[in-house]
Design a binder for these strands. Structure first.
Length: 226
DNA sequence: TTAAATTCCTGTAAGC
DNA sequence: TGCTTACAGGAATTTA
């Protein structure tokens, strides 16, 4: 079986195989896709091993088992709802702020909750939701349907900035995240609010607040975000 | 129809 | 030192 192109859609990694078949990987919280020599010791929580032609192993490891591996054509995976329909990619040039405003307008839930909703916007998790809202100076518990076009523009810019910066820094290793070569990311050093509850806001110096929204810890600045 | 709450899972850290 | 408990979170499922 030959491996073709490797793509990303939201938080899903799509590895193209032959006959339109995809190997789909979602890392969840603690998933790792690692490329190692066949003689590398098998780590605990390794759930799948793919042997490549050159003898190396592509191994999937996931401590908390929140991730998933799927195999099938894109059409079949979508039809069976094993892969959900996802919203637009924030970093896609076609995704404009007016589209964000339109998708938020009629929603009666918080900004934080809607950012985590993959059907509204794809690929944003707890870290970059908090970071984007801080950069946009918007409170996470504000109603999504009530924001102005101007606020939507700021959030649109913040989302793109947060995600593009994180990608350039190869991700945030706040937990166990490693890339395919076992390297940690660098973005965790640059986070403004995530994981910093009680510590001073880098903008105004006041301690950052923490609340729970949609079952997720949410950190923000009461002075800077409105 | 939409939104909120619950559940899964295991390592880590805090508290006693 | 050793045990118990709370917590972290993506998303499917259940409840409201």
């Amino acid at each position: 079986m030959r491996i073709g192109n490797v793509r990303r859609r939201g938080k899903y990694i799509l590895i193209e195989l032959e006959s339109d078949v995809l190997l789909v990987v979602h890392l969840g919280m603690t998933g790792q896709l690692r490329l190692v020599g066949a003689d590398a010791p098998l780590e605990t929580h390794t759930h799948a091993v793919f042997t490549l032609d050159d003898g190396r192993h592509l191994r999937y490891r996931d401590v908390r088992r929140f991730g998933r591996l799927l195999l099938g054509t894109e059409k079949a995976l979508l039809a069976s709802k094993k892969m959900p329909l996802l919203g637009p990619e924030p970093i896609d040039p076609d995704f404009v702020s007016e589209e964000l405003y339109r998708r938020f307008r009629k929603r009666r839930t918080s900004l934080k909750a809607i950012l985590l909703d993959q059907a509204t916007i794809a690929g944003v998790g707890n870290i970059y939701a908090d970071e984007s809202l801080h950069r946009a100076r918007l409170r996470p518990d504000r109603m999504a349907g009530g924001i102005s076009r101007k606020s939507a523009q700021r959030l649109h810019e913040s989302l793109r900035h947060s995600l593009q910066t994180a990608i350039a820094n190869r991700g945030s290793s706040v937990d166990t995240y490693r890339d395919a070569w076992g390297e940690i990311g660098g973005q965790q050093e640059k986070l403004m609010v995530y994981g910093r509850a009680g510590e001073p806001c880098f903008t105004c110096g006041r301690p950052l607040a923490m609340i729970r929204i949609a079952g997720r810890s949410t950190v923000f600045c009461r002075r800077c975000q409105h």
